[in-house]
Nucleic acid binder design. Structure first.
Length: 845
RNA sequence: GGGCAGGUGGUGAAAUUGGCAAACACGCUAGCCUUAGGAGCUAGUGCCUGAAUAAGGCUUGUGGGUUCAACUCCCACCCUGCCCACCA
C-alpha cells in the first residue's frame, strides 16, 4: 500500500504548474472570460495566518471550478504596499520602509504560493512601485482637472498617534481605525476627492450589483440620504450684508415649522460670532472655545447633559413671523446639514431636553393619538396638525409637502436632499505613500489677473498665496525620495526634504514648491483591479480593449471590514472614471462575497492576543491540500468560525483514504457499481458549489468515500445521505472508472495537487483541470423504489419501501396495515390522512 | 437609542427552504493491531426513564400562534455579535 505523501506531491505539481505557465490568463480568448479577484493584501511583518487563508482558498476553489467550466479565468494577486502599517513596522525595526516592504512581500509571496492557488503571478502589481503609483498620480490629476479633487480648509480628523489626518471612513466611533487613538478635530488645509457629488449615483448603483445585503445596507447608511427642506430664517437687527442675514436650516420635518421655538447653531458655524450681541460676546466666545476642545467621542456621548449659550440675537420664524432666540450648542453638528437647526422641542427629544434645561417654550403642533401621548414626552411620529394655522386638521405627512410648497411659493425655503457622506480627505502627513502630483508657484499667482484668481486655484502657505499647478502628465511619476527623515511629526516628512520640496514650476519655469503630503493608501487600492487587466502598460493606466475584455470583476472576495472604506472608494473612483469617459461601466464588482473571521478560543485571531495559527506549520505537517480542505470544512465561509486544531486531522485522514482508494483501485467486474449514487453525488456537490456552500462539499465526498469503502451492505434504513439508495455489495475498492474519475474531479478544486497526482496515476496525461466538470443524468438519480415515512399524529412510527408506480390507495393500505402503525391507530377513528407523494403519510386520529 | 445578523448535542456544524432534527467531522467510549502511540482499523455515541441491542418520552434561546406537520412561517420577549450613533 502506497502512502500519501503530500509534501512531495505538492512540490511536484506546483513546479509543473509554474513551468507550464498554466495559470497565466490570456488576454482575449474565444472562451468566456471570468475575473475572480481577492482583495489584495497589505504585507505586514506578521505574515498570513489561517484566517487570511480562508478567503484565498475560497476564491481559488471558485476560480478552479470556473476553469473546469471552460472559462478563461483571470485570478491575479498583488500587494497594497504603501501605507501606515508598513511604515510603522519599518520605524519599529529601524529599517527603511522600502527595504522592509521588500522583505515582507517576499515572505508573503512564499506564503501565498504555498496555497497552490492558480494566481497569475505574471500580473503581480505592487502599489509602492513607481510603475504603479505613476498611474495613481495620473488618476489624481484626472480628478483634479475635472474638479473632483480640490484643496480646502476644513475641520478634519487628526490622529495624534499616527500624526496624520484621516478620512471620515477611517474614524470608527471617534477612534482611529488603525490604532484606536482618540481622534482630534483640527482646522487644516487638505486635499479632498469629491465623493459627495456621487452620493446619489453610489446609492442607485447598489440596486444592480449582487452584493450581500449587509454590505449594501452599510453603504446606504453611510451615504445617509435624508429628504426634507432648507428653511430660511431672517436674522433680526442684522448688521451684515443683507444676503448674509439669514440662517439656513435643514430639516426633515417641515411639518413642525409652527412648533419652532428657537434656533441652534453649531459652535463651528461661521455666523456664531458674527451675530452675537455685545453683551453676550464673552460668554459665547468662551463656550465656543471650550466646545472645540471636547473630543468627538465625548461630544457625541448621548448620556452627556445638553450645554449651550444664548447669542443675544433673534430670528423670525418664516411661517409664524414670531421672534425666536438663536442659541449656540455643541449638540448641533457642524458637518451635517447647514450646521444650524430649527428646534422643535415638542417633537424632538434632543430639542426637548435642551428646552427643558434652558427653560425655552415648547409648542405642540402635532396631536398624537390620544392614548399614546404622555405629558413629559415628545411625540416624534405622525399625527394630526394643530396650532399650525391654515394647516390644522391635516395629517402631518401631508403637511410636510404642503408646508414645503408654501415655503417655496414665498421664497422662504426649498425642498432639499441631504447626505451624510462627506468628501474623501486623501492627503496624509506621512512618508510612505504616493506623492500628490501638485506644485505651488508664487510667480504664477502673481502673474494672474485679478478676475482669474479663483479660490480653487490657489492655496496659502505661510500667509502667502500660491497658484496650484498640476504636475504635467509627462513628468510623472513624482518619485518618492528615499533619503528622507520619515519620522512622523504631524508635518509631512517630505517638507523637510529640500531637494524634493524645491522644484521648478512646470508652467513659468520659476522656483516653486512641491506638495509634500502623500495620498491615502486607499487611493492606491481604489483602482488596482483595473491595472490587473494590463499590469505592464507603460503608456496608459491600462489598455482600453483589455479593460473592456476583463472588467468588471465577476467575483470579488474579501473581508467585510472594507464595507464603507475600500469598497466605497473603489466604487466612487469607477463611477468618476466612468463619468469622465474613461470607462464604459460604473460598477467595478458585480458580485461580492464576504469572508467571515476565524476565531481561536473565542477571540479574533491576532498577534497581540497571541492566538495566531500559522498555516506554515500545518502545511509542513499535513500539506496544503489538507489545510485548504479544512479552511472550507470549518464552517460557512461567510460566517465567523472557531478554529479546531484537531479538525485538520480529520481532513487529512480523508485525503489519505482517497489516496489509498485510488492507488489500490481495481476496476469492478460488475457492470457499473453505484452509478446512481455517483450521479447523485455530482448533483449534490455541484448544487452546493453553485450556492457557495463550500463547507458541505467535503462532507459529500466523505459520505461517498465511506460508502464505497464499505465491504458489506449494512441493514437498510441506517443513516447517511445515501441510505435510501442502498449500499454497495461489491468488495472493497471494486469501483468503476466513472466513480473514481468523478471523485477526483470533484475533489480537484479543493485539493488540486492531490487531484492532479491521482488523475495522472489513473492514466491521464492532461491536467484534471482541462478535463471538464462532470455532469449528472437526472434519470439515473431517480430510483424505482423510495423510502416513505409513516407518521401517526405527526410522529414517525415506521417507514416502508414503496415502488415508484404504486398507487396512492395501495400505499395508504400498505401503511395502515403495518404493525407499528396499527399499534397507534387501533381503537381510534382516522380523522384525516395526509399523503405527500414519495415523502410521507400522516394519519391523524 | 436605531439598524442588521445570529442562537440547533460535549465541540465545529448539516437539514434539498414547511415533511424522518443532529448528515459530515472533532472529541469521547470499547475492542483489534502494535515494543510503544498524540499512528491505523472496527463498532458505539443528542438527552431522560429502563438490565435491555425491549418499550416509551423529551429536544433546535424563552413564551405564544398558524398548520395534519415548524429549526424553518407569524407575534412578543431574552441573549450574543456587528454596523451606525445628538445626522435635525
Amino acid at each position: 500500500m502506497e502512502k500519501y505523501d503530500p509534501n512531495t506531491i505538492e512540490k511536484k505539481w506546483q513546479k509543473i504548474w509554474e513551468e507550464s505557465k498554466t495559470h497565466q490568463a490570456a488576454d482575449f480568448s474565444k472562451k468566456k472570460k471570468y475575473y475572480c479577484l481577492d482583495m489584495f493584501p497589505y504585507p505586514s511583518g506578521e505574515g498570513l495566518h489561517v484566517g487570511h487563508w480562508r478567503g484565498y482558498v475560497f476564491s481559488d476553489v471558485w476560480s478552479r471550478y470556473q476553469k473546469m467550466r471552460d472559462k478563461n479565468v483571470l485570478h491575479p494577486i498583488g500587494f497594497d504596499a504603501f501605507g501606515l502599517p508598513a511604515e510603522n513596522a519599518a520605524i519599529k525595526t529601524k529599517m527603511h520602509p522600502k527595504t522592509h516592504i521588500k522583505e515582507t512581500i517576499s515572505r508573503f509571496e512564499k506564503q501565498l504560493k504555498d496555497i497552490g492557488a492558480m494566481y497569475d503571478w505574471s500580473r503581480e502589481v505592487i502599489t509602492s512601485e513607481p510603475e504603479y503609483y505613476k498611474w495613481t498620480q495620473w488618476l489624481f490629476l484626472q480628478l483634479y482637472q475635472n474638479g473632483l479633487a480640490y484643496r480646502d480648509e476644513a475641520f478634519v480628523n487628526f490622529c495624534p498617534n499616527c500624526q496624520t489626518v484621516l478620512a471620515n471612513e477611517q474614524v470608527k466611533g471617534g477612534l482611529c481605525e488603525r490604532c484606536d487613538s482618540i481622534v482630534q478635530k483640527k482646522k487644516l488645509k487638505q486635499w479632498f476627492f469629491k465623493i459627495s457629488k456621487y452620493a446619489q449615483q453610489l446609492l442607485d448603483g447598489l440596486h444592480k450589483i449582487d452584493w450581500p445585503e449587509r454590505v449594501k445596507l452599510m453603504q446606504r447608511h453611510w451615504i445617509g440620504k435624508s429628504e426634507g427642506a432648507l428653511v430660511k430664517f431672517k436674522i433680526v437687527n442684522c448688521k451684515l450684508k443683507i444676503e448674509n442675514c439669514f440662517i439656513d436650516v435643514f430639516t426633515t420635518r417641515p411639518d413642525t415649522l409652527f412648533g419652532v421655538s428657537f434656533l441652534v447653531l453649531a459652535p463651528e458655524h461661521e455666523l456664531t460670532t458674527k451675530i452675537t450681541t455685545v453683551d453676550k460676546a464673552k460668554s459665547v466666545e468662551k463656550y465656543v472655545r471650550e466646545a472645540l476642545k471636547v473630543s468627538e467621542i465625548d461630544r457625541s456621548n448621548l448620556q452627556r447633559e445638553k450645554t449651550g449659550v444664548f447669542t443675544g440675537a433673534y430670528a423670525i420664524n418664516p411661517i409664524t413671523k414670531s421672534k425666536i432666540p438663536i442659541w449656540v450648542a455643541d449638540y448641533v453638528l457642524s458637518n451635517y446639514g447647514t450646521g444650524a437647526i430649527m428646534s422643535v422641542p415638542a417633537h424632538d427629544q434632543r430639542d426637548f431636553d435642551f428646552a427643558k434645561k434652558f427653560n425655552l417654550p415648547i409648542i405642540q403642533v402635532i396631536s398624537a393619538p390620544s392614548k399614546k401621548q404622555k405629558s413629559e414626552k415628545t411625540w416624534e411620529s405622525d399625527g394630526i396638525m394643530i396650532n399650525s394655522g391654515q394647516f390644522n386638521g391635516i395629517n402631518s405627512q401631508q403637511a410636510k409637502s404642503a408646508i414645503t410648497e408654501y415655503l417655496e411659493k414665498n421664497k422662504l425655503g426649498i425642498s432639499s436632499v441631504n447626505y451624510k457622506l462627506k468628501d474623501w480627505l486623501i492627503s496624509r502627513q506621512r512618508y510612505w505613500g504616493a506623492p500628490i502630483p501638485i506644485i505651488y508657484c508664487r510667480k504664477c499667482w502673481e502673474l494672474k489677473t485679478k478676475n482669474e484668481k479663483r479660490k480653487t486655484d490657489f492655496t496659502i502657505i505661510d500667509g502667502k498665496e500660491y497658484a496650484i499647478i498640476p504636475v504635467p502628465e509627462e513628468q510623472l511619476p513624482v518619485l518618492l525620495p528615499e533619503k528622507v527623515d520619515f519620522k512622523p511629526t504631524g508635518e509631512s516628512p517630505l517638507a523637510r526634504t529640500e531637494e524634493f520640496l524645491n522644484t521648478k514650476c512646470p508652467k513659468c519655469k520659476g522656483p516653486a514648491k512641491r506638495e509634500t503630503d502623500t495620498m491615502d493608501t486607499f487611493v492606491c487600492s481604489s483602482w488596482y483591479f483595473l491595472r490587473f487587466c494590463d499590469p505592464k502598460n507603460k503608456k496608459k493606466f491600462a489598455d482600453k480593449t483589455r479593460i473592456k475584455y476583463w472588467m468588471p470583476v465577476d467575483f470579488y472576495v474579501g473581508g467585510i471590514e472594507h464595507a464603507t472604506m475600500h469598497l466605497l472608494y473603489a466604487r466612487f473612483i469607477t463611477h468618476a472614471l466612468h463619468s469622465l469617459g474613461l470607462l464604459d461601466f460604473n460598477e467595478p464588482f458585480l458580485k461580492l462575497y464576504t469572508i467571515g473571521m476565524i476565531y481561536l478560543h473565542g477571540a479574533k485571531m491576532s498577534k497581540s492576543r497571541g492566538n495566531i495559527i500559522s498555516p506554515d506549520e500545518i502545511i509542513q505537517k499535513y500539506g496544503t491540500d489538507t489545510l485548504r480542505g479544512y479552511e472550507l470544512f470549518v464552517g460557512p465561509t461567510d460566517e465567523d468560525s472557531e478554529w479546531n486544531v484537531n479538525g485538520v486531522n480529520g481532513v487529512y485522514r480523508f485525503l489519505q483514504k482517497v489516496y489509498t482508494l485510488v492507488a489500490d483501485f481495481k476496476e469492478a467486474k460488475s457492470s457499473v457499481p453505484m452509478e446512481q449514487q455517483t450521479h447523485q453525488l455530482i448533483k449534490r456537490y455541484t448544487d452546493d458549489l453553485l450556492r457557495l456552500n463550500f463547507n458541505t462539499l467535503i462532507s459529500h465526498l466523505m459520505s461517498f468515500v465511506n460508502l464505497i469503502s464499505k465491504k458489506e451492505a449494512p441493514p437498510t434504513g441506517v443513516g447517511g445521505i445515501f441510505s435510501s439508495l442502498g449500499r454497495a455489495k461489491e468488495d472493497k475498492n471494486q469501483c468503476s472508472k466513472f466513480q473514481i474519475e468523478t471523485l477526483i474531479k470533484l475533489l480537484s478544486p479543493i485539493a488540486p495537487h492531490l487531484a492532479e497526482e491521482l488523475w495522472q496515476k489513473i492514466g491521464n496525461e492532461q491536467s484534471v483541470f482541462e478535463s471538464g466538470w462532470p455532469s449528472y443524468d437526472q434519470d439515473k438519480i431517480a430510483s424505482d423504489t423510495m423510502t416513505l415515512v409513516i407518521q401517526v399524529n405527526g410522529k414517525v412510527r415506521d417507514t416502508i419501501v414503496i415502488k415508484k408506480n404504486d398507487s396512492k390507495a395501495n400505499i395508504i393500505d400498505m401503511a395502515i396495515k403495518r404493525q407499528d402503525v396499527q399499534k397507534w391507530i387501533v381503537g381510534n377513528k382516522i380523522k384525516k390522512t395526509v399523503y405527500i407523494p414519495f415523502k410521507l403519510i400522516n394519519f391523524v386520529v
